[in-house]
Design a binder for these strands. Sequence first.
RNA 1: GCGCGGAUGCCCGAGCGGCCUAAGGGAGUGGCCUGCAAAGCCAUGAUUCGCGGGUUCAAAUCCCGCUCCGCGCUCCA
Length: 452
Amino acid sequence: MMRLYDTAEGSVVPLKLRDPGKIGMYVCGPTVYAPPHIGHGRQVLVYDVLRRFLEWSGLDVTFVSNVTDIDDNIIKRGLAEGRDPAEIAIKCEAIWWQVMDQINVRRPDHIPHATEYVEEMVELIQTLIGQDKAYVTADGVYLSVEEVDGYGLLAHQDLDNLLEGGGEREVVGSEKRHPADFVLWKFAKSGEPEWSSPWGPGRPGWHTECVVMSLDLLGEGFDLHTGGLDLTFPHHENERAQAVALGREFASHWMHHGFVETDGEKMSKSLGNVTNMLDLIEQYDHRAYRLLVLQSHYRTPMEVTGASMVASETALDRLDTFVRRTSVLDKVEVPDALVERFRTVMEEDFDTPGAIDLLFRQVREANSALDDGDELRAAGAAAAVHLIAEVLGLELGADEDDVPAEIQAMAEERQSARAAKDFARADELRDELHSLGWTIEDGAGGPEVRRA
RNA sequence: GCGCGGAUGCCCGAGCGGCCUAAGGGAGUGGCCUGCAAAGCCAUGAUUCGCGGGUUCAAAUCCCGCUCCGCGCUCCA
């Protein structure tokens, strides 16, 4: 039984399922107005791994992640660059999926777009107005937060506290009934994209999107709602508020992941620590960031620097070398004890660092066994490594390039030189191969040539 | 100001009352192996867990105060 920290509860609790054997999860997806950054990267990686693990556990997972393609940020950028906001959204979404493919993040089962759900959103707002839980003002339609039981559940603060302090929330000169009331429908200013509604042309508010789409695709009382820590309030609070106002059961479990930090150091390409996923993938092994994300617990802040990316790549080399070394072993079943350890670790608040720990221990176990000539023991540990890596979405053992004839010839010449104890010539050839981008290692089974 | 979370070796990062003489990864050092390397293995590395108090037979882990950092209270993964 999976246990997860629930933001509403403030503690780790069993993840209860509405329908046994099935789980519906809603992951707040991107607003497509810029390329994904490493924060998005952590987000998609965390939930991609969770999904893979839940499926491996035998659950039938419905994974929904939206694309926000109506938003102030998109409009703002369109205005600034004199472009059609819709075109920006389409382009940015294309880049998003391109990045997802490159980092081996699986596509959601459903990808609802805000633009496809405007009618349903209007309907929802209409219902709320009919119940006098929402009201129309000069600039839009607002939800009356005081009508909502337990508003502040996720924020862990009451309404008064939420209003004090640093926020720039509009209070003075507003027609809002309560300062915390939030917008469900924004009337369009001239030049802005608009959809028609009974109250006037405009666009839906961000918080309305996700309630409508999650309830539509996953149904009332769905299992798991996730997102970044920053979405807890107001976004998720306000989604819930609308559902509660409507008298509908919303998500039963709230999961939030921590932020990515960069040591106060400016992230820049020249420093080798970049914030943009496109640059990150270009500069490092596309699996390196996944491994890095996996190595820290999803709820704690995580440090990303060029150095940690390089460290992650080196660890990946170790894993790839291991896979190469063990590929000749007979395939055996993963020992039950290891399967259970993996499951136990992961089920306790999604402890991926614990899983990575287990993974590397098995690597050492197998290498050690191999050094001792115990292939059977090595095969079991190696099988565990493959299982864990697969469930975590880590692709190991990169494809080997074919060795060209001339490279092969040089390797053979080196071997002859070694046999003749002409080590000077042998080392010369090894250096030459290296400068051509090839590595040669003398293993137990003879020299092995591969791409450096 | 209020709320939530973080501070652990050279770096990343687990641990969250006794199994901690603190996991795992990366870097370093010594050794085995190797013609030399590489890979791999073994060993080594925090007597200490931001600071100051306290509780306890026992604290990195609990409580109080403080410092610094992040997030939220406005759009944000």
